[in-house]
Amino acid sequence: MHPVIDVRGAVKRYGQGESSIFALDGVDLSIEAGEYVAIMGPSGSGKSTLMNIMGALDVMTSGKYFLDGIEISSMDENALSVVRGRKIGFIFQSFNLIPRTTALANVELPMAYQGIKSAERKMRALKALEVVGLSDRVNHEPTELSGGQQQRVAVARALATRPALLLADEPTGALDSKSTSDLLDLFDQINAAGRTVVVITHEMEVAQRAKRIIRMRDGKIISDSLNAELVK
């Protein structure tokens, strides 16, 4: 059984020559299927860059990346778009729903790009919205939903494609505490169902829910341990 994420010697450099900055400075990371991982660190630590590379949104300067056993680091943009659609479900801090488009259409969208037939797409989208508890909001547009509801639509959109990996970048950054705890309960539930979840955050409260906590600083991993709370 291969790991879901296998990053080796990841380097991401911005700029050229002496003024260049290393956002990632030789990161090795392996995440097994079914894990629930939180990546923590202050701003500028490289955690967002790492997440963008794991999500195939960005490419690294050097290093290798295997996602679900497939090497991603050598793929071109067209192949990457397929990987993003099939293997990864994204959740962003700013929700990133398509404006003026209903919750249902937003959840259906990635499946539409995969070429899934309309009837099956709709069924799966309704199912995913039911999982996140929004069955009564399927025909609402993003502006008609609260922040917590929008983020749950984004979770439904990420789940509906049945990805190998759920990647969340500061998912609670724009939410109040009630919505935050609802969302984190949802993540627990998703992970309990067997899906791999990786959350980038700088909030301890969020990281505490994960089973494994990775801390970063200056583009390097400084600690990688099982959650002390859970170990106790």
């Binding site: 999500g55 949104l57 778009s81 398509i98 969208l109 990635p110 790009y113 494609t161």
Partner: peptide, 16 residues
């Protein structure tokens, strides 16, 4: 552009 970014992040190929 941002919407294009969202669409690409959820798997839209350039062609589409």
């Amino acid at each position: 552009t941002r919407e294009i970014g969202i669409r690409k992040a959820i798997g839209a190929p350039k062609r589409a």
